[in-house]
């Protein structure tokens, strides 16, 4: 059985409870064992990096250090957490920067691999497992990655920043059709959501219009900030899902509690995804 180290970050236990809960439900269903990083702290989010560079590296570096005792790869569901943790990991890969980090945090025995949560499900064996739970629906969705899972490319070396594919592959495995559209990794304006919402509404409108035009009935994302922002700043109701929620529906383990957390009520569409008309 596969074992992973899991870093939920602050949101998956709070504002993005439905993402956290659906992730855990899906992991359990697939028989993947996870352990949260012992005594984990906030990754620094957007605040630390705009105030203090050193702090923005040390916060996620501490999480990496705590995770190293578990000897498993770290999987991170939140785009912001993943991005920050990768920056800390790259710093640790540089001898000089590592020395500076170790001055504050003590010696690192090892540095585990850090992956976005999607990577876990694009593993060939798991994709095969996923494809045993097939949805029968004509609902189409637009997969949306936002910025932080794919950029900066040279730091993350994750997937193609212009046309990322992992969420599409996961959703297709459970029989949900995804549309081709150009704004998969377009910025949703998340960081400005409170500071300057006028900028954000323009961006969100673009994203949603393009998704609709491409023939999608909903957007599926993996980033809690994108999800909240897209729901909050849109004009006409257009549901925004986490990909783990879709997997939950496909496996038949979805939970009414998840839908109640959404700002845009997705329940009509959920029943369509389940095969209803």
């Amino acid at each position: 059985m596969k074992k992973i180290t899991y870093y939920p970050g602050c949101t998956l236990h709070s504002t993005a409870y439905e993402y956290g809960d659906s992730t855990e439900a899906v992991l359990k269903y697939l028989g993947i064992e996870w352990q949260e990083i012992p005594d984990w702290n906030c990754c620094g989010a957007a605040s630390a990096k705009s105030l203090n560079h050193k702090l923005s590296i040390l916060l996620p570096a501490r999480n990496i250090k705590n995770a190293s005792t578990l000897n498993n790869d770290i999987y991170v569901p939140c785009a912001g957490c993943y991005n920050n943790m990768m920056k800390a990991k790259r710093a640790l890969e540089n001898a000089e920067e590592r020395q500076n980090i170790e001055k504050s945090l003590g010696k690192f025995e090892s540095i585990p691999e850090v992956y976005p949560l999607m990577r876990l499900f694009t593993d060939k064996a798991i994709l095969e497992k996923l494809s045993q739970s097939k949805l029968k629906t004509d609902v189409k969705v637009a997969s949306y990655y936002g910025c932080a899972f794919v950029r900066p490319e040279e730091v993350l070396q994750n997937e193609n920043p212009e046309i990322p594919q992992s969420i599409d592959n996961i959703l297709n495995a459970v029989g949900l059709e995804t549309v081709e559209w150009p704004l998969k990794s377009f910025c949703c304006g998340g960081d400005l959501s409170l500071a300057d919402s006028s900028v954000v509404s323009v961006l969100v409108e673009k994203i949603i219009n393009y998704a609709k035009e491409a023939g999608a009935n909903a957007i599926v994302t993996a980033c809690p900030l994108c999800q909240a922002n897209l729901e909050m700043r849109q004009k006409e109701p257009f549901p925004i899902f986490y990909f783990t929620e879709i997997l939950g529906i496909a496996m038949g383990i979805d939970n009414e509690k998840w839908w109640k957390k959404h700002l845009v009520d997705p329940r009509d569409l959920v029943s369509k995804i389940k095969g209803g008309k």
């Binding site: 193609n160 920043p161 212009e162 046309i163 081709e180 150009p182």
Partner: peptide, 8 residues
């Protein structure tokens, strides 16, 4: 050239 549509 991905940003210009990958020839699509």
């Amino acid at each position: 050239i991905p940003e210009y549509g990958y020839g699509m």
